[in-house]
Design a protein around this nucleic acid. Structure first.
Lengths: 206, 206
DNA sequence: TTAAATATATTAACATTGGTAATAATATGA
DNA sequence: TCATATTATTACCAATGTTAATATATTTAA
């Protein structure tokens, strides 16, 4: 019966919505069965009719947040054409999203892998997400001789590590203390990496 | 009375020792009042006569682990003289320590800042630790014109961010999957950064 | 040395978690 | 309408952090 599945998806959605709201507002630590169920308008035990356990629910949220980050970044880059400059804008938006919702940074990068059970696919999705986000731009850069194809992996990995490191210290350790300082620091650092691994237009033979 | 304080320190030490063992072996998640007290040979409530709460105990451990990492790194660099090569060796040892004891990485970098209460000094100690570890070497490099003084902060920060990012993805996300791959990746990346910000001996005017 | 005072440790209890099983309520189909 | 299947809830359990009351050592003073 299809009607049954529609209903099931609907109720699942209520729980996911509630958990997402808590994650965004109060962070992972506040996502408890009681808390989520209260907000969804159900008893906490009902949650177990729709999710294996609380981690299962949290990872359903993660999946949806991936789309949300993508949309957020897309929204910040409307009208821009592919290339190094757009990578910088995308990265800024990417960092800003996690600063706005530290709970989601926590969920994406800090949550213990042990607690993810069989959600390895979601973990992989998160890991490769930044690369996919900038894939068009990297392709453009390679096609136009702005980045050497054999250096692509190194530079994109480098940016991934730096971004995670920056966010980790800013969100989790308050270094630097001010947002303005963080963002200018981050941008300078990203610019430096991109400069290092790109061939400027003047030098570009084509 | 001094005797009283000696005894107090002694019992405190038993709890800290027990907690450290659990942290090293099973990680932060297993450090519970009951678990620690059992291992220390006391009731769980006794713990509260010596520590404000469980986080207080955990941060006492953190302080001791800082010394432990320092010793570990020192031990791996006996006989080496100050300079870029020693920084590389120190960084390798630093990374290896956290890979050997992921629970301590978790404690140092992943534990929520909110749960640290008034231990801001310890947080600061952890944050500046890597710089202090390499301070002699950086000084040597500046004095010998190997590193430009005005670039020191940038490069040492860069290394901090990259190290944290590398460890985060390896320990918490299993990327890359193999230790061998991780260490060669990490070393290549650190070497690249150091090369970029150092003036090679041949180029060195002195 | 022994009784009072102090310090230390333990038990009992509470609240909050995640999670399960039995039960109640509701919807579905003949 | 009534039996059946589905869905939600209550009542529980075990583990956690934490506190208060109580028991047990230890020290101090007579």
């Amino acid at each position: 019966m299809v009607r049954k599945e529609i209903k099931e998806q609907r109720v699942k959605g209520y729980f996911i919505q509630a958990a997402k709201e808590i994650l965004k507002g109060e962070g992972l630590v506040c996502v408890s069965t009681r808390n989520v169920a209260d907000r969804a308008g159900y008893s906490y035990a009902t949650l177990y009719n729709y999710f294996k356990d609380i981690k299962d629910l949290v990872f359903e949220c993660a999946k949806e947040f991936i789309d949300e980050v993508r949309d957020f970044v897309k929204n910040e880059t409307v009208g821009l054409t592919a290339g190094i400059e757009r990578i910088q804008v995308k990265l800024k938006a990417y960092l800003n999203y996690f600063i706005q919702y530290p709970g989601i940074f926590e969920l994406f990068f800090l949550e213990r892998v042990s607690s993810m059970g069989n959600n390895q696919k979601t973990v992989e999705l998160i890991y490769t997400f930044l690369d996919k986000l900038c894939a068009d731009d990297w392709n453009y850069c390679i096609e136009h001789g702005i980045v050497r194809a054999d250096q692509l992996e190194f530079v994109s990995d480098h940016i991934r590590f730096i971004s995670a490191g920056l966010l980790l210290f800013y969100i989790n350790r308050r270094h630097p203390q001010e947002y303005g300082e963080f963002i200018s620091l981050a941008q300078a650092r990203i610019k430096e990496i991109l400069d290092r691994y790109t061939i400027s237009r003047e030098d570009n033979p084509r």
